[in-house]
Design a protein around this nucleic acid. Structure first.
Length: 897
RNA sequence: GCCGGGAUGGCGGAAUCGGUAGACGCAGCGGAUUCAAAAUCCGCCGCUGGUAACAGUGUGGGGGUUCGAGUCCCCCUCCCGGCACCA
């Protein structure tokens, strides 16, 4: 055995052996239980970044652990290869996106292989290849014919100078990123997936996902945003024609407090009013400037203008003014809202600004004053809980929006109706029911379930994406491309220039014959949202060579047992993939209802930032690798001049704070990179980069290597100690065995259930520290040492596979090593865990005041007696009997004096 | 703005079901080894007071529940992720 730990040597050898033996090829026909472990595939941006290393190491740990547990593991890898960055690179470097993308894939594959991931490379796929996207096109045509995909107008960001549609990312402070022109909203025809048809199932399906983090399920539920409310009508008369303005509200109980209604700038009523009102037309035009991003819409100043039109209150017959509000979204509900300034914060602000009346119709104070509601439920609904009361009291005490005694500024349903005629005294539910019934009787409203979720628009006016398989024919209309003409191949030799979609200029692509009538027709040049490709790739891995979208192998592998990826995908990607799975199910392609059984959302990798600011305010960012820190002063290594310390932020190109994993692998080896990323933080938290921490991880691997070397050096390997072996173990050796088997228990639980690898590693470090302290060279001690080393290398194998396998071979020279399969997870020896005496904490009034030792089998009475008899207890009792004694078996005794 | 999450020593983090706060690692300090250094090994290490034993205090801030709160409840501050055309 080599005395020195030489990572590059053992890693090269191990990886060569894994490749030669196809060690990680998943069997489609195994009778062992399957474990499909999937990490979100990367966008081939150029180089691997630390976020990738973290993501794929987490997946690899779980994959290798389950392999050691006897599962038939599949861990595939592929490339989310279509996307905007390739077009940006094309504009900057004058290379076709395809060439750029394929070069990146080749480089990044090499990097992934250098990290030693147990990936089945035979299943590799890239979404930009026709043999992948042809099936996406095939499904598109089927869904189009079924009506699940349809065409309608939708609003996009329009750059009037570059004459191109901009992504939200390309709109900076309301202007186009390249032209600097003020961005406008423009309506264009687009294809949509009818995801709202599946809204209820996407919501209720969350209940069948116990393996998903609660926060992700909550975010998805809120995104889908199911709300039960009332759709109601405000009748009006315009130019002698009778019509109605519909609104949706979840607060029909406040209907008697409506003082105006507000419509979106795009609302037909606003358009009508603007025809004869130039000031209003100008205001509507102003509303149509700026980006379509909802975050921008929601943070801009609330503005409005009176249309001069009036509608009639459906119950009171009052005349209500109609305003245009820039905060009303045309895409939600009816594009119009009833405004109740007394009980809605936004309406309140708007009414204040424009001097509109405010009418209180809910009394919250009454409920707090009358605490009887707690007992009797007299608010008309459920009795209030003490938590409701506390919340309400706090809210009344702390609200900041009040301009007078009763305005609350919050939207809370805890209250009773006042100033509402026949509805006075009713609580939320009772009032909504009564008002909905009265509206229904007049045919002016009904209860309605509304979703916040909108249909998924997938048309992109971009080149580097999957072509939408539609042909536009003057006589036949939009005709889906028939199956025998698929795929519609995207030409790969195109270099976009940033002004519009270059496919429009390719006559050979655009001009075609109508599949129906044979007449000359035009091919659709829009491509699909890249989220479409990433919505079904997990299924294609099961059968990457199938001559169909999916074959029977899909159901063998699906659902994915463990999915791992960034928290930033909590809503969009994961919701679209769930939706697509249901689409494929309804097409008979898969039989399960959900694609991902367990989900792990990994945190970001962050690092310090350093910069220098020029006179004009422009910042130059320095990479942490080029910065030296001494006594809190940061200097640039190349010129020795100081740099300013910025915040700790997500590793990014723009802040130049990325750490290149390649340099790390070159210097310390893949195992150190893997160990550090798993040790520095639990997977779901953000991980702060630290060069010193990497040193520490490397040091531990050297210690582990040396521990094995020292053990083997003197007399070679021995048979590991097993329960029931003869030979007297010293107390110290027994204690070490107990620690070992406690650790085996803990590490298995940490990896499998808790997915907290940092504590699993720490437990192994403690074990190696304890082993270093164990003295003695008799046969029994040596066999326990062998047992510990074999177990530690096995427990660390999922995390640092190269060194673990190398040590495994040294420790067991006779054993033939089949990579990835020869090592099995160590078993817990229950007899090693038994303890005669245990230590309990002794508290007096909840403060730690000492310890007591009791027999492991002592009952509560015996423990209490021992506690009271102890010196520490006597000291604090001062002869008085205790008020109370709390005994928590196995933990502590608390004496209250 | 809305939805979700987070805040614990000098730093990354641990404390799994309300029960010893600070495991493990990094940095630092002291020592051994060395001609010297690197590497390695041993010891100390929340804060305040004390030679020490020990006492007090301490998990972003304020309040509450409990024998007992980092953990549960209410309010607040700051930071991060998402907001439908970045992926």
């Amino acid at each position: 055995m080599q005395e020195k730990y030489l990572p590059s040597e053992i890693e090269r050898a191990a990886q060569a052996q894994w490749a030669a033996s196809q060690a990680y090829r998943a069997s489609d026909a195994s009778d062992r239980p399957k474990y499909y472990c999937l990490s979100m595939f990367p966008y081939p941006s150029g180089k691997l970044h630390m976020g990738h290393v973290r993501n794929y190491t987490i997946g690899d740990v779980l994959a290798r652990y389950h392999a050691m547990r006897g599962y038939n593991v599949m861990q595939p890898m592929g490339w989310d290869a279509f996307g905007l960055p390739a077009e940006n690179a094309a504009i900057a470097n004058n290379v076709p996106p395809a060439a750029w993308t394929y070069a990146n894939i080749d480089h990044m594959r090499t990097q992934l292989q250098a990290l030693g991931f147990a990936i089945d490379w035979s299943r590799e796929l890239a979404t930009c290849k026709p043999d992948y996207y042809r099936w996406e096109q095939w499904l598109f045509t089927r869904l189009f014919e079924k009506g699940v995909i349809y065409k309608k107008m939708a609003t996009v960001n329009w750059d009037p100078v570059d004459a191109t549609v901009l992504a939200n990312e390309q709109v900076i402070d309301g202007r186009g990123w390249r032209s600097g022109a003020r961005v406008e909203k423009r309506d264009i025809p687009m294809y949509f997936f009818r995801i709202t048809q599946y809204a209820d199932e996407l919501l209720s399906g969350l209940d069948n996902l116990p393996g998903w983090p609660e926060r992700v399920k909550t975010m998805q539920a809120n995104w889908i945003g199911k709300s039960v409310g009332v759709r109601l009508a405000f009748p009006y008369e315009l130019d002698g024609h009778k019509d109605t303005l519909w609104v949706f509200t979840t607060r029909a109980d406040t209907l008697m407090g409506v003082t105006f209604v507000a419509v979106a700038a795009e609302h037909p009523l606003a358009t009508r009013a603007a025809e004869t009102n130039p000031a209003l037309a100008a205001f509507i035009a102003e509303c149509k400037q700026g980006s379509v991003a909802e975050a921008d819409m929601a943070t801009m100043e609330k503005k409005g203008m009176d249309t001069g039109l009036k509608v009639t209150h459906p119950l009171t017959g009052e005349s209500i003014p109609v305003w245009v509000g820039n905060y009303v979204l045309m895409s939600y509900g009816e594009g119009a809202v009833m405004a109740v300034p007394a009980h809605d914060e936004r309406d309140f602000g708007f009414a204040q600004k424009y001097g509109l009346p405010i009418k209180q119709v809910i009394d919250h104070v009454a409920i707090v004053d009358a605490r009887k509601a707690l007992a009797t439920g007299k608010n008309g609904d459920q009795p209030l809980t003490s938590q409701d009361i506390e919340k309400l009291e706090n809210f009344l005490r702390t609200n900041k929006y009040s301009t007078d005694r009763w305005h609350d500024g919050y939207d809370t349903k805890l209250g009773i109706c006042i100033n509402s005629g026949k509805y006075d005294g009713l609580g939320y539910e009772a009032a909504v029911d009564a008002i909905a019934a009265d509206l229904a009787a007049k045919a002016l409203g009904e209860k309605k379930t509304q979703f916040r979720l909108r249909d998924w628009g997938i048309s992109r006016q971009r080149y580097w994406g999957c072509p939408i398989p539609i042909v536009h024919c003057d006589t036949c209309g939009d005709v889906p491309v028939p199956e025998n003409q698929l795929p519609v191949i995207l030409p790969e030799d195109v270099v976009p220039d940033g002004s519009g979609n270059p496919l429009n200029k390719r006559a050979d692509f655009v001009n075609c014959a109508c599949p129906k009538c044979g007449q000359p027709a035009r091919r659709e040049t829009d491509t699909m949202d890249t989220f479409v490709e990433s919505s079904w790739y997990y299924a294609r891995y099961a059968c990457p060579d199938a001559d169909a979208m999916l074959d029977t192998r899909a159901n063998r592998w699906l659902p994915v047992d463990q999915y791992i990826g960034g928290i930033e995908h909590a809503i969009l990607h994961l919701l679209y993939a769930r939706f697509f799975h249901k689409l494929m199910r309804d097409e008979g392609l898969v039989s399960s209802d959900e694609p991902f059984q367990h989900l792990l959302t990994q945190g970001m990798v962050i690092a310090d930032t350093y910069y220098r600011e020029a006179a004009d305010g422009k910042k130059t960012w320095f990479n942490p690798a080029d910065v030296e820190l001494r006594d809190g002063v940061a200097t640039c290594k190349t010129d020795g001049q100081p740099v300013t310390v910025g915040g700790t932020e997500k590793m990014s190109k723009s802040k130049n704070n990325g750490v290149d994993p390649q340099a790390l692998i070159d210097q310390y080896g893949a195992d150190t990179a893997r160990l550090f990323t798993m040790f520095a933080a639990p997977p779901e938290q953000s991980l702060e980069w630290s060069d010193a921490g990497v040193e520490g991880a490397h040091r531990f691997l050297k210690r582990l290597w040396k521990a094995a070397f020292d053990h083997l050096q003197e007399r070679g390997s021995v048979t590991a100690y097993m329960s029931g072996d003869s030979g007297n173990l010293s107390d110290e050796t027994k204690a070490l065995r107990r620690q070992l088997h406690q650790t085996i228990q803990k590490v298995g639980d940490d990896i499998e259930r808790r997915k907290q690898f940092n504590t699993a590693i720490a437990a192994n470090m403690e074990l190696i520290n304890a082993l270093a302290k164990l003295e003695g060279d008799d046969a029994a001690t040596r066999s326990v040492r062998q047992e510990v080393l074999e177990a530690v290398t096995a427990m660390l194998a999922p995390i640092v596979p190269h060194i673990s396998e190398a040590l495994h071979v040294e420790l067991k020279p006779g054993a033939e090593l089949k990579p990835g399969t020869a090592m099995t997870w160590p078993a817990v020896d229950e007899t090693a865990l038994v303890q005669d005496e245990i230590e309990l904490m002794l508290q007096v009034n909840g403060k730690l005041r000492g310890q007591i030792r009791v027999s492991a089998t002592a009952d509560k009475v015996a423990i209490e007696a021992a506690a009271l008899a102890s010196e520490s207890a006597q000291k604090y009792l001062e002869g008085q009997p205790p008020k109370k004694v709390v005994v928590v078996p196995g933990r502590l005794v608390n004496i209250v004096v």
